[in-house]
Lab assay of single mutants.
Amino acid sequence: MSGNGNAAATAEENSPKMRVIRVGTRKSQLARIQTDSVVATLKASYPGLQFEIIAMSTTGDKILDTALSKIGEKSLFTKELEHALEKNEVDLVVHSLKDLPTVLPPGFTIGAICKRENPHDAVVFHPKFVGKTLETLPEKSVVGTSSLRRAAQLQRKFPHLEFRSIRGNLNTRLRKLDEQQEFSAIILATAGLQRMGWHNRVGQILHPEECMYAVGQGALGVEVRAKDQDILDLVGVLHDPETLLRCIAERAFLRHLEGGCSVPVAVHTAMKDGQLYLTGGVWSLDGSDSIQETMQATIHVPAQHEDGPEDDPQLVGITARNIPRGPQLAAQNLGISLANLLLSKGAKNILDVARQLNDAH
């Protein structure tokens, strides 16, 4: 009898209710805020589980004197976190989706994509230029951005401005803007500013005609071990179906173009009346040469937790077992079709030249 009692006690200790789920994140304040929001949602869904947040620095956090596009290494903000995932030191990792490459290392998958916040870019102005827009900034004003995508589009749109690289986390960039006289304004992701509670610093939100956004911008991705079915089931509740389908289309477009950090590629997606609209573009580094096109596809946005595919093969690095396969494939095909259209119009040449120029500098 006593033996059975011990077995029952052991089973209770090993039951999922007692389990601590370890969540990996970057150390920056924004990353911690984003991770806290994901953990809060998981806690609400699984009140019996405990969650421990483990923060670590990544290569991208450490190399702050070089433009991201020049470092010449993929997975700048993800490699150390993936290493911890691989060694079973954490069970899942919360990322900004735009930091996750469209091809993940073997053994990993994006197990959830959370509801997207505003994906557009924002302009934050130096205190002396508050009330201005990019259009009304004085001639030769210097605007800071760490992104080739932003610089290429904005140089084309605002030729009277000069664009220079600015690195560091959000706090560091804002301090550089406010305390030094080098920059009249800087460009940042609206979602990051909003998550930090800095709505009052948003001086201008850039519309798609001015600057399309990065693939996955404004959404959070939760990376897990691809074979860890328990954790895949656990994080599945975080999937937002519309965000998922938009981001599958965007990531398929980028992957098929073979774009990345070192080339200016941008997108804009919208879901309306059962249609998914995808606009994508590529630019030369100075913005003088560009190709942009829009395509659409009829896609039914499923309700969360309709029964999805059981075999769960990944699409552009994403596993969404609780979302039907048909809409996911339709979104992926839309991204591939748009990429093929741009490639047929000469996108590869623009991107190759951009890559060579970026590598040469």
Score class of each variant (00 low, 15 high):
A270M: 15
P119Y: 09
V265Q: 02
V143Y: 06
S96N: 00
F125G: 02
G280T: 01
N349S: 06
H239Q: 08
N171K: 12
E242I: 03
E162K: 14
D230S: 14
L76N: 11
L193G: 13
L188S: 14
D91G: 05
I54A: 07
P208D: 04
A84F: 11
L245G: 04
A152S: 04
V263Q: 15
I187A: 08
R167K: 06
L42V: 07
I231S: 10
S288E: 14
V38R: 03
S165Q: 13
M271W: 05
S37W: 13
A152L: 12
W198F: 11
R173C: 00
A152Q: 04
A226V: 13
G326F: 01
V142H: 10
K62A: 11
Q296D: 03
H83M: 13
Q292H: 14
G131L: 08
L174G: 05
I110V: 11
R149I: 03
A214E: 05
Q314D: 00
V94Y: 03
L154V: 10
P309Q: 10
N88I: 11
V38Y: 03
L170Q: 14
I350H: 15
S75F: 00
V39L: 09
T133R: 13
E306A: 15
E242C: 03
H207E: 14
S337G: 12
L254P: 06
L42A: 06
F253D: 01
T59H: 10
S288P: 12
A219T: 07
E306M: 04
K128A: 12
I54M: 08
D65M: 04
V94T: 06
P105K: 11
R246Q: 14
I299N: 06
P302I: 03
T133S: 09
F129P: 00
L334K: 02
I113Q: 05
E250D: 05
N322P: 09
I231L: 04
H268I: 03
A214L: 03
T136C: 06
L154M: 09
L161K: 09
A191L: 01
T66G: 12
D312F: 05
R195E: 04
Q292R: 09
I53N: 07
R251E: 04
Q229A: 07
G197T: 03
K115F: 11
H305C: 14
L234V: 14
V142C: 13
A214W: 00
T66V: 14
F163C: 11
D286W: 09
T41V: 05
V90F: 05
T298Y: 10
G218D: 02
L343S: 06
F108Q: 15
G131N: 09
L351G: 01
M196L: 12
R175G: 08
D359N: 08
R195C: 07
K348F: 11
A84L: 06
Q292F: 09
I54N: 07
K132T: 10
A84N: 08
E179S: 11
A354V: 07
K98Y: 01
P324D: 15
T133K: 09
S69C: 13
S37T: 14
D352V: 08
D99L: 02
A347Q: 14
S262V: 09
T190E: 03
E139P: 01
L315V: 03
E209V: 03
K176D: 09
A67M: 00
E52W: 05
F125R: 03
E293W: 14
W283M: 00
E306T: 03
A122E: 05
Q328V: 05
L170I: 10
N333C: 02
